[in-house]
Amino acid sequence: MDGVALLTIFVLSIFVGYEVVAKVSTILHTPLMSGANAIHGIVLIGGIIVLGSADGALEIVLATLAVFLGAVNLVGGFVVTDRMLEMFKPRKSADDVEGGSR
């Protein structure tokens, strides 16, 4: 793709990224950071692309490491985010009970 098209996508993505999280509440700062952290784990596919065409020992070792680290970031990131948000679940049911019993 040509440079201008990429630049266009880049600039528009900045605005989208900025706007979608603009109204986040303080409680969710940590989960949001963690979720964003998981999303950049998509660098995994970059690792797969370079490993797929790598030749020579140095390239292969470095690219394999890239795939490994990318997978850790991607999978671990989403799992830990979900675990954080899991903690908020009992709170909701507690709220429901709250309305009825107290």
Binding site: I9, V16, G17, M33, H40, I42
Partner: peptide, 17 residues
Amino acid sequence: VLLLIAGTLVGASGTLL
């Protein structure tokens, strides 16, 4: 393009955060 978009989204939202 996907790496570009995903990375930029995180870069922008992360800066705001």
